[in-house]
Amino acid sequence: MRPIKKLLLLALTSAAFGTAGWAYYRGPVRQRAVVRQFTQLDLRLAANNRLAEQQDRTTIRGIKRVVGRNRNNIRDVAVLRRAEQIGFRTQTIIDTLQTLRRQLSTAKASTQNSSTLVTVAPASITVLAAHLDSYVAFIRQFVPNAAPLTQVFATYSKPSEFGAFYFKNRPLAAVLSTFTQVEAQIRRYSEEALMSQIMRVNSEGIFNMIALQAVAESKTVAPGAAYRSQLFLGQTISDGHFQKATVNGKPVQLLYPGHAKVELQTAPAGPAQPDTVRAQWQGVIRAEGYPSDTAWQVTVPYFIVKPTAP
């Protein structure tokens, strides 16, 4: 299984919050705990979505390069056009999601309270549901088993019910997480659709286009807090290669071939430490016998920022 598919299984776990999560109403302590769960889930899924977006772009560029090497024959050019259309339709629906999410994020910034109960305008959700259904109808050309994105359960199939279940009188953190979860599902469909196109073109050159990349949960971290990121190969090579990963020269565990989790503990702020400190880490993934011993490296900057006093 490719890394992004395993990562996006997180999206499936978030469905549990749709039912058990509404234990939110049992009291202030439970409310805070549930909001923290939604917030943490949202951070993980958002990082995975950025990773998926990078992988989709790498795949489309790979197809384009191979089509060029094959002298732009008609069959391969048609595959490239379909891949580009998949990328365009995916980004269009995600832009719609992110527009709604930004509007709610603005509300969050003004209230500074993720526990606030919100209701997204029914008209906005009706439009969103129509776009989601249209996208699934399109993507089924390439992923025939793609499930509806607006169907909560078998008995919840109408857009109005989709909106009522996820976007009516819900904690703000839960609504924001729902948008991120839906984006994760769209990214998963997009990846599967693009993989179907790879199989239709001479893809020998695509998987040789390997680059090491990193996607952080955030580019800033408070002193004394943990910085987290994902280190991954832009295209996965065979599981048969024995891969090793290091971060700042120290071994880290590969979760599966081509992908490692990065977690760095920052030191507490010293008395003379500036408000913002630029830092960086270096990741390396090695593969034995690809076709000879090979190492991919990446240097990733981040910032240690003192929290602003309330």
Rank of each mutant, 00 (worst) to 15 (best):
R200M: 05
R200Y: 00
R200I: 00
V201D: 01
N202I: 00
N202A: 04
N202S: 06
S203A: 11
S203W: 01
S203P: 00
E204L: 03
E204H: 03
E204T: 05
G205T: 01
G205L: 07
G205I: 00
G205V: 01
I206A: 01
F207I: 02
N208K: 13
N208Y: 05
N208A: 08
M209V: 02
M209Q: 13
M209I: 04
I210Q: 08
I210R: 04
I210K: 03
A211W: 01
A211G: 11
A211D: 12
L212V: 08
L212P: 09
Q213N: 14
A214I: 03
A214M: 06
A216R: 11
A216F: 04
A216V: 07
A216T: 11
E217V: 08
E217F: 12
E217H: 11
E217S: 07
S218P: 07
S218T: 12
S218W: 03
K219Q: 15
K219M: 14
K219D: 15
K219Y: 13
T220N: 13
T220Y: 10
T220L: 10
T220S: 15
V221E: 11
V221G: 10
V221T: 13
A222W: 04
A222T: 13
A222G: 11
A222C: 07
A222I: 05
P223S: 06
P223I: 03
P223M: 03
G224D: 12
G224C: 11
A225P: 04
A225H: 14
A226F: 07
A226Q: 14
A226K: 15
R228N: 11
S229N: 13
S229V: 04
S229T: 09
S229Y: 05
S229D: 15
S229Q: 06
S229P: 04
Q230A: 08
Q230P: 01
Q230S: 11
L231R: 10
L231C: 10
L231A: 09
L231S: 10
F232P: 06
F232R: 06
F232L: 12
L233W: 03
L233R: 05
L233I: 04
L233F: 04
G234H: 02
G234C: 03
Q235S: 13
Q235V: 12
T236N: 09
T236L: 03
T236A: 13
T236F: 00
I237T: 12
S238K: 07
S238H: 08
S238E: 11
D239V: 08
D239F: 07
